[in-house]
């Protein structure tokens, strides 16, 4: 079981309200991702749930029980840290067994669980090595192993992939997703990378300046962003925002259109191509359109527009409309 309920959770460091007040329900078995720019309070929120920080006010319930003032060890949660936080003086086996040893479990059961976790994570051959002798990906797996042997109510991940190189990151992303499929345990995952959020989450919580901007399934956020912040944060490349006369035509203060929703060819907008990046599968073009500004366009790979070319563009997808307060209409 792993249902976590936050009610009016507030955190202040001295005079500064890092988190002014958050209400959030995380259902049992959900994969929830906290995403937002650095300094948005997502890591602090995770640490509040973990019990590594005190909440200033509000309550945290885990499986219906008030856990607000419980020490970390008593909450039944496991955490994977950004730096993995492995114990360098212990072997992999001892690292994974450490929480079991602290819980006073008997040796035979400890060994059984460690072996099982090692098998799942492909670490069987490394059990007697020390963390210093492992690669980044292997260390990551040990950290996960240490978390899963406890059979916690929920897993907390604090930017676990940010120390890995790009190729490894994709692999680990899939492994964590598969782990969630097989364990079906609640996972809370913090990242600043919206791609990780989109690919892994059942539910994304977008945070900004300690506030929740929107909660929803990945595609819901993509298709129906509630405000300018979410619209700009989710999706890559970033959504184009247009103000002024063009927006007024759509009865809005600001309109947004995603780069992949603009077609090259015949259309109402004409502009000069600036920077163009050809990736093969796609081409990203920066087009300076008169009276509108620079638009980013995601065109098919075969479009051969180059610096200085004049091209015409047409909207070919949803146009998002926002009012003066930045809220979606």
């Amino acid at each position: 079981m792993g249902k976590i309920q936050l009610t009016k959770v507030r955190k202040a460091f001295g005079e500064v309200d890092v988190i002014p007040g958050i209400d959030l329900t995380i259902e049992d078995g959900e994969f929830v991702v906290f995403v937002g720019p650095s300094g948005c309070g997502k890591s602090t929120l995770l640490r509040l749930i973990a019990g590594l920080e005190d909440t200033t006010s509000g309550t945290i319930e885990i499986d219906g029980k008030d856990a607000t003032n419980l020490p970390p060890a008593k909450r039944g949660l496991a955490m994977v840290f950004q730096s993995y936080a492995l114990y360098p003086h212990m072997t992999v086996r001892k690292n994974i067994a450490f929480p079991l040893k602290m819980a006073g479990m008997d040796r035979a059961e400890q060994d059984r669980r460690v072996e099982r976790a090692a098998k799942v994570l492909n670490l069987t051959n490394y059990l007697d090595r020390r963390p210093g002798q492992l690669s980044g990906g292997q260390r990551q797996r040990v950290a996960i192993g240490r978390a899963i042997v406890r059979e916690p109510a929920a897993f907390l991940f604090d930017e676990p992939l940010s120390n890995l190189d790009a190729a490894l990151r994709v692999g680990m992303r899939q492994e964590i997703s598969e782990l969630h499929q097989s364990l079906k345990t609640t996972m809370i995952y913090v990242t600043h990378d919206q791609v990780e959020a989109m690919t892994m989450a059942d539910k994304i919580v977008v945070l900004n300046a300690g506030r929740i901007e929107q909660v929803g399934a990945p595609l819901e956020l993509y298709n129906h962003p509630r405000n300018l912040f979410v619209a700009g944060f989710i999706g890559s490349p970033k959504m184009n925002f247009i103000e002024g006369a063009e927006a007024a035509k759509h009865d809005a203060h600001t309109i947004g259109i995603r780069p992949e929703h603009i077609a090259v060819g015949d259309g109402p907008w004409e502009g000069v191509v600036g920077l163009s990046e050809h990736l093969g599968s796609d081409s990203f073009l920066k087009v300076a359109v008169e009276g509108i500004g620079t638009l980013t366009v995601r065109a098919p790979g075969e479009v051969a527009a180059r610096h200085g070319d004049r091209i015409r563009l047409a909207p070919a997808g949803k146009i998002h409309r926002f009012d003066t307060n930045g809220l979606a209409i």
Binding site: L52, P72, A73, A78, S83, A85, Y87, P99, M102, R146
Partner: peptide
Amino acid sequence: IPGEILEAARMDGASLWN
């Protein structure tokens, strides 16, 4: 010594003494 390692120990159920 990175503080995260001590926090990990705390998450793993270690008391201050441990």
